[in-house]
Design a protein around this nucleic acid. Structure first.
Length: 551
RNA sequence: UGGGGUAUGGCCAAGUGGUAAGGCAACGGAUUCUGAUUCCGUGAUGCGCAGGUUCGAAUCCUGCUACCCUAGCCA
């Protein structure tokens, strides 16, 4: 994790420090991560998860996982397990797992209280009329003709709403605040609506459901949340959040809402609408497609929880809208993996090399270190023979300036093995390079202290008869080129999001994470591998990062 | 056009009146059996703009400008 100085503090900590100084919450820090179970979690949620859980951890406080399931029409249980899995995978444990729907009875009671105190009323306006009465950004709204209903009438009407006497949209319960408020959220906001829908948790027990603005502060208060952290777009809702708690007067001290800027990544679209459409239309293999910015997708791509947590900590927290460069995320995964993963030889766009002066049929093993960072990880033996594969990028028939890898007449070191000199370049009929011929110098074997001459280049290789074919995929993230998430798109307009793969050859290895020379990192996910005809393991999908090789 | 926010080097981001942290990216250089890694080094005379207060301002005041959010019976 980051040990960089200056990182790890943010404005929310300042608020908490101040609260602790004044004793507002008696030193308690209780946060919560409140997803609505209507999709998979993505990297943006990871920022919120890290913020909430880490803040609690930092102050020795608590953090709940709470499903904000107040809208029965949009939520599905299938997302619940993925959410819990992702939070756990990131390395966090919640103090309590709760459902907003478990508070429905208490929320109803709160609503009744407001009615009894003349602070809420049942309104019969249609959705359209409601919109007209609400006014505009610049014009104040008009009071509903139903605003003056008596407390008794409101009580019985609300009870009838609960009893199912009315159809969806026929009536709503509204808070009585101020139709002339410059903040539209305060213009007698709806706090309960009718929805005859099956709720995943409460079934058909309810046909009226609380709105977010009414439910959320109550949920926080019931759980004893002290700092309710949410994103910037809720800033305008804070007055209503405070109003609900103040008018109810049931909790002291009441929780406070704090807003921060949500995460944006360059060229990455994270709206659930966009991601869900990709999944629904089969444009990706699922929510965990490696190209997806979901936590599940990143996991399958080879990201570690440590890297994601480190990233979330390094980017900081502020109220300024910003777009973090995706390079930063990649830096974090490289930084994490490089110190804890072994190296393996893998070549892409493999090019056959024949060592013409090496005995045919002979196979020898040369020693190579498993890690250059960890000497204690030891070495392994890799095969070497007359026929090898090298990376297509490690040979240029006509070398560009300052190219010091293999080209006709040039000598390079094969890492762990010998010096080889390119003597010939064999072409196919179409002019492409078929294979190259080299000679090796037995005296230059690695580890034997040859000092006769130096070479400027060292390249890696894979022995041909033992190599495992695979596809090295360098996935692009979901690119937003020309797309902003609001427009329609199809598989064609989404070409930019396609993964591109290159055929590769690798030394045999178990399905774990390794570092590839020059290629970055990958994970050979077991579920992405299969056996080929000869019983050899083939990694159909090898998830990698962009190459570190620059031209 | 009302209200609410935000503006610090290419990208994040500290800073809370005392003379601009750090990270990413970039670019130099050293080391290197892979142009990786590692290691050093380089960048705002300047903190959206214009004034003002002060011995001193990114931080305080005034006036502008730009961008974001906001008119769901979504969250």
């Amino acid at each position: 994790m980051s040990e960089v100085t200056g990182i790890g503090n943010n404005f929310i900590h300042n608020i908490i420090d101040e609260d602790n100084r004044t004793g507002k919450y008696g030193g308690a820090v209780y946060t919560r991560f409140p997803p609505e179970p209507n999709g998979y979690l993505h990297i943006g949620h990871a920022k919120s998860i890290c913020l909430n859980f880490s803040t609690a951890l930092k102050y020795g406080g608590k953090c709940n996982l709470r499903y904000d399931d107040t809208n029965p029409e949009k939520e599905e249980m299938e997302y619940v397990s993925s959410i819990e899995n992702d939070v756990h995978w990131l390395g966090f444990e919640w103090t309590q797992k709760l459902w907003a729907s478990d508070y429905f009875e208490e929320m109803y009671d709160c609503a009744v209280q407001l009615i009894k105190e003349g602070k809420a009323f049942v309104c019969d306006l249609s959705a359209e009329e409601m919109r007209e009465y609400r006014g505009t950004l610049t014009k104040p709204g008009k009071e509903s003709p139903y605003r003056k209903r008596s407390i008794e009438e409101n009580m019985s009407l609300f009870a009838e709403m609960r009893a199912g006497k009315y159809a969806d949209g026929e009536k709503v319960l509204r808070a009585k605040i101020d139709m002339a408020s410059p903040n539209i959220n305060m213009r007698d906001p709806i706090i309960y609506r009718i929805a005859h829908a099956e709720h995943h948790n409460t079934g058909d027990k309810w046909c009226i459901y609380p709105m977010y603005d009414f439910a959320h502060p109550i949920e926080d208060a019931i759980e004893g949340i002290t700092h309710s952290i949410c994103t910037l777009e809720f800033e305008d809702h804070r007055p209503l959040y405070d109003w609900v708690l103040k008018e109810l007067g049931r909790w002291d001290p009441a929780p406070q809402q704090i807003e921060f800027a949500r995460l944006n990544l360059t060229n990455t679209l994270m709206s659930k609408r966009f991601l869900k459409k990709l999944v629904d239309e089969g444009l990706v293999s699922g929510w965990d497609d490696p190209r997806m910015p979901t936590i599940a997708g990143l996991r399958r791509r080879g990201y570690t929880p440590e890297a994601i947590r480190d990233f979330c900590e390094r980017i900081g927290v502020s109220k300024a809208n910003s777009v973090v460069d995706i390079d930063y995320l990649e830096h974090c995964i490289r930084d994490d993996l490089k110190s804890k993963v072994q190296s393996r030889n893998v070549v892409t766009n493999p090019l056959k090399v024949i060592i013409t002066n090496y005995p045919e049929g002979q196979l020898e093993y040369v020693e190579i270190e498993n890690s250059r960072e960890h000497e204690e990880w030891g070495t392994r033996e890799i095969p070497f023979s007359r026929e090898l594969w090298i990376d297509g990028a490690d040979f240029q028939e006509v070398p560009e300036k300052k190219y010091f890898r293999l080209f006709p007449g040039n000598e390079v070191r094969l890492k762990g093995a010998y010096f080889v000199t390119c003597t010939d370049c064999i072409k196919n009929d179409d002019g492409s390079v078929k294979e190259i011929h080299c000679t090796y110098d037995p005296e230059t074997k690695s580890g034997e202290g040859f000092e006769g001459r130096k070479v400027k280049g060292t390249i890696h290789f894979v022995e041909a008869s033992t190599a495992v074919p695979l596809e090295v995929r360098e996935y692009d993230y979901l690119m937003t080129d020309g797309l902003d998430g609001t427009q329609e798109f199809n598989s064609e307009s989404l070409n930019v999001v396609a993964a591109y793969g290159e055929p590769g050859m690798a030394e045999a290895m178990p399905g774990e994470q390794f570092q590839f020379f020059r290629l970055g990192y990958y994970i050979a996910d077991e579920k992405d591998s299969s056996e080929n005809a000869t019983g050899k393991k083939v990694f159909n999908k090898t998830v990698g990062l962009k190459s570190t090789w620059k031209k």
